[in-house]
């Protein structure tokens, strides 16, 4: 029994070390955004000037707006299209259904480097070119499989008899969907939407290949800045991004259990 307790204690300690490994760099990066020295020198002196200078950086602000617009549009489009597709895959049996479900995995599994360069070649070839519209096209395609997988998982817990009951009480197909099915799968739809937002807002690789100097997103702009040299301004904008996306995922976790236990 004593060994068990020692082993459990070691296990807890180990998890603590892992969490330190995961979070310390991020915390240090965030602290440096509040440090006076532009060369990250210690001792630490508090300032918010780097956040103030972000405010003056028009290029970065424009890229932030682009990122937000694209993320919001991606969320709306992929949630609507993805939920519709999940409903169809849940309700109906037809030939080739397995193939359609299997087709959702290549976009998730293939490295973004390959997807991104392929999109660049194709969009250029057919005349869509690069820019914000191309980025939106790409982001929705990347987010759709996630939305469909998440909403479908929620649909697995739905009892089709509820739709039967509503129909036998005289509801038409539209009423059944809006009044019965949709409220039930709503947690899945919201979680799918938050996933879609995160996929788009944090997306770097695909945006990188599809952006042009004027039409770019925040991560692409940050990458360009990092390659020019490190400045506390990058720390400031990075801190804002990381706080936003972590808050978003905490919100997602409220609607969707990752652990699969419930």
């Amino acid at each position: 029994m004593a060994t068990t307790r020692i082993l459990e204690g070691l296990g807890r300690l180990y998890i603590g070390l892992l969490l330190a490994f995961l979070y310390l760099p991020i915390i240090i990066m965030a602290l440096m955004s509040f440090n006076v020295s532009p060369f990250y020198q210690l001792p630490f002196e508090w300032t918010t000037e780097w956040y103030a200078s972000l405010w003056q950086n028009d290029q970065l602000i424009a890229a932030t707006w682009n990122s937000l617009e694209i993320a919001i549009l991606t969320t709306i489009i992929s949630v609507v299209l993805g939920s519709a597709a999940s409903l169809a895959l849940f309700r109906y049996e037809f030939l080739g259904k397995k193939v359609l479900q299997a087709l959702l995995f290549p976009p998730i599994a293939i490295p973004w480097l390959i997807t991104g360069t392929a999109m660049l070649i194709f969009f250029f070839g057919v005349g869509i070119g690069r820019g914000l519209f191309a980025i939106l096209l790409g982001h929705v395609a990347l987010a759709l499989p996630y939305v469909i997988v998440v909403v479908s998982a929620r649909l697995q817990t739905f009892a089709p008899e509820l739709e039967e009951a509503a129909r036998s009480l005289g509801a038409n197909q539209w009423q059944v969907t809006v009044r019965v099915t949709l409220p039930w799968i709503m947690p899945g739809v919201i979680a799918g939407g938050l996933f879609a937002f995160a996929v788009s807002f944090d997306q770097f690789v695909v945006s990188y290949f599809l952006s042009t100097p004027g039409q770019t997103t925040l991560p692409v702009e940050i990458y360009a800045a990092i390659r020019k040299g490190f400045t506390p301004e990058i720390n400031a904008v990075s801190t804002i991004i990381i706080v936003v996306s972590m808050a978003l995922m905490l919100l997602t976790a409220r609607f969707f259990k990752f652990g699969g236990e419930k």
């Binding site: 995961l22 979070y23 760099p25 991020i26 240090i28 990066m29 440096m32 990250y40 995160a198 944090d202 770097f204 991560p219 940050i222 990458y223 990092i226 490190f230 990058i234 720390n235 990075s238 991004i241 990381i242 996306s245 972590m246 978003l248 995922m249 997602t252």
Partner: peptide, 15 residues
């Protein structure tokens, strides 16, 4: 952390 920006996390290691 996995769901936060990968680019930012790589940058944080540079620090």
């Amino acid at each position: 952390p996995f769901w936060s920006n990968g680019l930012v996390r790589i940058f944080s290691w540079a620090m």
